[in-house]
Structures are given as structure tokens and as C-alpha cells.
Design a protein around this nucleic acid. Structure first.
Lengths: 116, 116
DNA sequence: TTAACAATTCATGAGTAATTGAAGGGTGGA
DNA sequence: TCCACCCTTCAATTACTCATGAATTGTTAA
């Protein structure tokens, strides 16, 4: 993944409203959530939400799908994974202490993993 | 990890100079690199570098250690891991497609992996 | 003590991002 | 057709981030 795309994605995530937005959409699963419902849920104005949604969409972190009057937004899990993968593997070169975060909620860190 | 700390870290990473800086420091290992050498390496002015270094340090992504006239900066691998861990586990709730990034450098994406 | 060096801090200005409210483009129901 | 609804776009304002160079602090060597 190119660095410029990673930077765009990180900029998109580096915002309170948008990070919260991604969290909500993750919970919502693949069917996603209508923009209006998100706006009510996060208590932001429609135009402001629309701005943030387009930032996330341009960064490849979410996708929108029209359904009659509504637009349902859902996370692009592969896109998010690509960004995290860049940080983990390209940027941090699979550093064992960094990669300790990959064991989701189990043991802290297996110390003698000598995989490279 | 609190969301405000994650946001600070993401903001710190969402900058070309600083992302490149983290990459260099990761390569440099635990002994780190003197600020002046980093500045020469990245071709940025001393004051500009100092600004970026402090952003990263405040975000808990790097640490500085004085040695006579120099300050050696090195990555805080645990700190970086915490940020990625938040994205992976808290924000994305260990979503399998997101977590596919955790297998460092092997198959691109096994489509029907239903292991968890 | 003086000079040279390493790094940071400060003030200024330029550029970019975020918020707001109003206006516009589709869509569905009466 | 008319109105209500959902969402996006636009223009204007505000707020923030980044870059620059000069001044400053602290350290080493002459």
C-alpha cells in the first residue's frame, strides 16, 4: 500500500467524530447504517456528518450504498485492515513488541517468537 | 486505552515527515538515533524536526534519551502497539477481515477463513 | 572564559481542516 | 403535482497545523 494512501487514511481516522463513526459502523455489520440514523446517533448535523462520511469514503475506510431515499454506510473492513497492515508490517516491520497487539485479548506477548 | 490518547497518536502518525520518522527509528532499533542525524537523514531543519519529535513523544510513540550534547530518539514499540491494538481490538472488535493484516507477509487474503 | 555545537523554543505567516446554515437534487407518498 | 424527507453541496467563518528563521538553553572543548 502506498504511503500517500496510508496518510489519507490516518488523517481520516485522526478525528474524534470519524473514529467514533467507524466504531459505530463496525458494530452495525455489513448492512451498515443510514446516514440520518448515524447523525441522530452521534448527534451531529447532517451536513457535518456528510462531510466526515465523504472523508472516510475517500480514504477507503467505508462505503456508501444507495437504497431509495437513504444511503447506507458500512465499513470497508479490508480497507481498514490494509492501513493497520501497513503500520504493522511495512512501517514497523513486524516488530514483535508492536505485533503483540495482534493477539486479541489473550496472553500479553509471547516473548521468544523469532519468525524473521 | 482511552480514545483521546489514540486520537493524539493517530494525529501524530498522520503526517508524512512523522510517519517516515517512525519508520527510520524502527529500523534503528532500541539504541535510537540522534536528532541531528535524523534531521540530516530526512533533510528537514532542526527546529522543524524538533517540533515533529515532540509531537511523537507526547503521543507516546517515541522516547528521547539525553546523552551529553545529543538526544537519542527511539520508538516506543509498546506505545505503537497499543494504538494499533486499539484499532484492531477495541475499534474494529477483532473483525476477521480487519485482522487479516496480522499475518505478516504471507498469503494475500484467504477468502474463506472461518477459523474464529 | 570564549567559541562551537546540539537541540529546543518562540513568533510569525501560510496553508489546511472543521463547523455552520442555507440551498439544491433525488425519491416516495398523498 | 405537491409536499415531505434524506442526503449532499456550497460559501463563509473559525480553528488548527505546519514551516521558517532567529533567539535560547545546555554541553563540550580550547
Amino acid at each position: 500500500m502506498e504511503q500517500s494512501r496510508v496518510l489519507a487514511a490516518l488523517s481520516a481516522l485522526a478525528n474524534e467524530t470519524r473514529l467514533e463513526l467507524v466504531r459505530r459502523l463496525i458494530q452495525q455489520g455489513p448492512e451498515g447504517m443510514a446516514a440520518g440514523d448515524i447523525a441522530r446517533d452521534l448527534d451531529v448535523s447532517a451536513s457535518r456528518l456528510s462531510f466526515h462520511l465523504s472523508q472516510l469514503e475517500q480514504a477507503g475506510l467505508i462505503t456508501g450504498r444507495k437504497a431509495s431515499r437513504n444511503v447506507f454506510y458500512s465499513v470497508d473492513a479490508v480497507g481498514i485492515g490494509r492501513v493497520i497492515g501497513y503500520l504493522l508490517n511495512d512501517c514497523c516491520r513486524s516488530h514483535p513488541e508492536v505485533c503483540a497487539c495482534c493477539t486479541p485479548r489473550h496472553a500479553a506477548s509471547p516473548p521468544e517468537q523469532d519468525g524473521e
